[in-house]
Amino acid sequence: MIRLVKDDLRPPATPPKRHLLSVGDLTRDDIDRLLGTARTFAAALERHVKKLPTLKGHLVVNLFYESSTRTSSSFELAAKRLSADTLTVKSVGSSVDKGESLKDTALTLGAYDPDVIVIRHPQIGAPQLVARVTDAHVVNAGDGKHQHPTQALLDLYTLREEFERLDGLHVAIVGDVLHSRVARSLVQAFALVGIRATLVGPPALLPRELPAETTVDIEAIRDADVVYVLRMQNERMEPGANFVPSLREYTARWGITPERLRPGQKVMHPGPMNRGVEIDPRVADSSDSLITAEVRSGLVVRMAVLYDLLTGGPVGVQALAAAEVA
């Protein structure tokens, strides 16, 4: 009897459509395939093929309930580069603003028969809701503090382009892990591909019981191949929150400065950066910074995700690779 109750709480059986809701949905094979497709697209873009006809006639809807220039424009451009039609709905100035529920918005947009809905929402699980009520493939572009799977994929892509491998790398993730969907997605993704992760930050910003190495000691970044700097979100630092005594103190003890890095140690950041807070401008602009590479990776990885969802995965990728060669 008890079992029955538990099973009732599980989401309905395997969804008929493929979605990208969480890194947890991916296998190692999925990741290798997606990164391979992304590399194919990068090669095509380098040959000044700015636009591929691949997704002509498909509709990609971007539904953004949180302000985000970089992620929404990256998805929009990715869709356009693949010749898909795009429709971007932002919460400001739309019926979303007038108190329409997410479910009703999703149903309304669903009536246009979109092939993909890309959603960012402050509530954990919002993409799962959209996936349940529409027929579209759903891509999670960030839900609360939960997941941001395309960020993890673009970071894996960036790392692989830089190091030509993923297995055995060691990445230190530094800063506000507690409030970071990027960190959560990365920890899962790193585990899948054999990257060692060390989480570093002030105690109140490291979640308890996250299955990963954690330390408050900033010296721990020295052993890592890459230092991945998380954004210190000002809104988390309201007076009275007391996660840290002050941003000034945070910077002094956990800020990433040239002095804290080994020569040649690579640095990443999901953006937008607070220069002078979590990352010293000299670090951000140094030749060891992979930050602009991450932005470029974002475009081709999101193209790969859209392509993969709409063309049924491995078979499609092989066909594309063949076409590119020919």
Binding site: I124, H146, Q147, R181, R184, R208
Partner: peptide, 13 residues
């Protein structure tokens, strides 16, 4: 509950 599930899913514990 503040524990592994909240840590992994990102819920305030």
């Amino acid at each position: 509950h503040e524990g592994r599930v909240a840590a992994e899913l990102g819920f305030g514990g």
